[in-house]
Simulated assay, not measured.
Amino acid sequence: MSVLEIDRLSKSYGSRAALTGTSFEVRAGEIFGFVGSNGAGKTTTMRIVLGVLAGDGGEVRWDGRPIDADLRRRIGYMPEERGLYPRMKVGEQLTYLARLYGMDAATARASMERWTDTLGIAERRDDEVVKLSLGNQQRVQLAAALVHEPELLVLDEPFSGLDPVAVDVMSEVLRERAAAGVPVLFSSHQLELVERLCDRVGIIAAGRMVEVGAIDELRRHEVPRWRVDGEPAAAWAPGLAGVRVLAETGTTTVVELAAGSEQAVLAAALAAGPVREFALERPSLTELYRDVVTASNGTEVPA
């Protein structure tokens, strides 16, 4: 099965280091979310994968082989800046792009029809790209990345400027491609979407990968935190070993618990009154992102 490996990539622009030993992998059939602030190195990494830029060090491999021109023909790439011919009609353009990748005319036409149908732009096939809304242009750009039936997808901000319906359509397309075994790498500033859609995520800050892993793994606190919705902590927490109260908001208390103390805490809370919720407290990806980027950079950086 195909695996994309990013191995210790480095890249500098003059005296500024854009990437410093960046490493991660995108496995067959998974959706990998690549997140970081503007200038963190996401687009530079993707451009090196595609051969648009040359790295100063490190290597990009696919199935264990360094990526060459032949392998790049099997990649579907969607740049952050739209790369379409504005005065060319949608259907003609997508068919033309499929032919450039080696499809015969009939197969290219059929693929164009499939993806314009799937992405909800079939009725715009005879329109020039420049006459489309920004959201529909984004759909055409994704169709251009898919029309040659690529074996790997690399998408730079594919959800930018889309309305909620279009986001759902694109999300379903990415899930379908991953289910077919295609590795999907995409960058986004929409962290709630990344959290909902991705199997794994990589957080990059100042050219370095600071966290890589499954969402649930990254969201775990080193010391487990629990959310207790019931009586105030003063009614049940004092005297309990291994319990540290972190926050109280209304009827909800967040506590750190030593391993093995969960049942004792729940019993104490129940003895004090009704308990409506007793659950692990895990940070959202947005909270995690802020924490790790702040720790990496020394300042908080917006996604």
Rank of each mutant, 00 (worst) to 15 (best):
M1F: 02
M1D: 04
D7C: 12
R8N: 13
Y13G: 09
Y13L: 12
S15C: 05
A18K: 01
T22V: 15
S23K: 08
A28G: 15
E30S: 15
V35Y: 01
G36W: 01
G55K: 08
D56W: 12
G57D: 15
G58V: 10
V60W: 04
P66N: 13
I67V: 15
D68A: 05
A69F: 04
D70H: 13
R72T: 07
R72P: 06
R73A: 09
M78G: 03
E80P: 00
L94N: 02
T95G: 08
Y96S: 03
L100W: 15
Y101W: 13
G102P: 06
M103N: 09
M103Q: 14
A108N: 02
R109Y: 08
A110Y: 01
M112P: 01
T116K: 04
D117P: 00
T118F: 01
L119G: 00
L119Y: 01
R124A: 10
R125S: 12
E128F: 10
K131I: 09
L132E: 08
L132Q: 05
G135Q: 02
Q138D: 11
R139S: 11
L142I: 10
A144D: 10
V147C: 02
H148A: 02
E149C: 04
E151C: 03
E151T: 12
L152E: 00
L153M: 04
V154R: 01
D156P: 01
G161W: 12
D163K: 09
A166D: 12
V167L: 10
E172D: 09
L174C: 09
R175D: 14
V182R: 00
P183A: 09
H189E: 05
E192C: 03
L193E: 06
L193V: 02
V194N: 02
V194E: 02
R196P: 05
R196L: 07
L197R: 03
C198G: 12
I203K: 00
A205V: 04
G207Y: 07
M209A: 07
V210Y: 02
V212G: 00
G213V: 00
G213C: 02
L218N: 00
R220I: 02
R220H: 09
R220T: 07
H221Q: 08
E222Q: 14
P232D: 14
A233V: 13
A234E: 15
L246M: 11
E248L: 12
G250Y: 14
T251I: 11
T253L: 09
V254F: 10
V255F: 03
A267D: 15
A271I: 11
A271S: 14
P274Y: 13
E277H: 13
E277R: 15
E277Q: 14
E281K: 07
S284I: 07
L288S: 00
T294I: 11
T299V: 15
T299D: 14
A303Q: 08
